[in-house]
């Protein structure tokens, strides 16, 4: 019982939950630049970097360093396993709340 409803600790933290929600809400294969992501989350760059690293280590997000001309641009996206983990997390939240659908 507890094992089946245990929430993924990588996602279950306010900042990372908001990051995952934001990435999952974009189009299926969309990538977003670091500054725009930061703006949508209203987080500091340092704070966002820390949480992105944790999510990247878990394989939930991909960080892609590209170039736009000579300027480096960092693109962030949710991975397939990340999306599945996020969906599982939401399903467990609903289960904990007694199966009520939002």
């Amino acid at each position: 019982m507890t094992a089946s409803t245990e929430l993924d600790p990588v996602i279950h933290a306010q900042a990372r939950l908001r990051v995952m929600t934001t990435l999952a809400t974009l189009g299926p294969r969309d990538q977003i630049t670091f500054p725009r992501l930061q703006q949508l989350l209203e987080m500091t760059a340092g704070n966002l970097s820390t949480h992105l690293r944790r999510l990247e280590d878990a394989g939930y997000v991909a960080v892609d360093k590209a170039h736009s001309g000579r300027t480096p641009v960092t693109y962030v996206s949710i991975t397939g396993p990340g999306r599945r983990a996020f969906e599982d997390y939401l399903a467990k939240l609903r289960e904990l709340l007694g199966g009520s659908t939002p």
């Binding site: 929430l7 939950l17 908001r18 929600t21 974009l26 949508l40 939240l93 904990l96 709340l97």
Partner: peptide, 24 residues
């Protein structure tokens, strides 16, 4: 505590989804 947290988490998800949809 866990259930309360789940409720807050779900509200957080829904709020952020609406925020991102409205802006993207």
């Amino acid at each position: 505590d866990e259930q309360l947290d789940a409720q807050q988490s779900l509200a957080l998800v829904q709020g952020q989804q609406a925020h991102v949809r409205a802006r993207t």
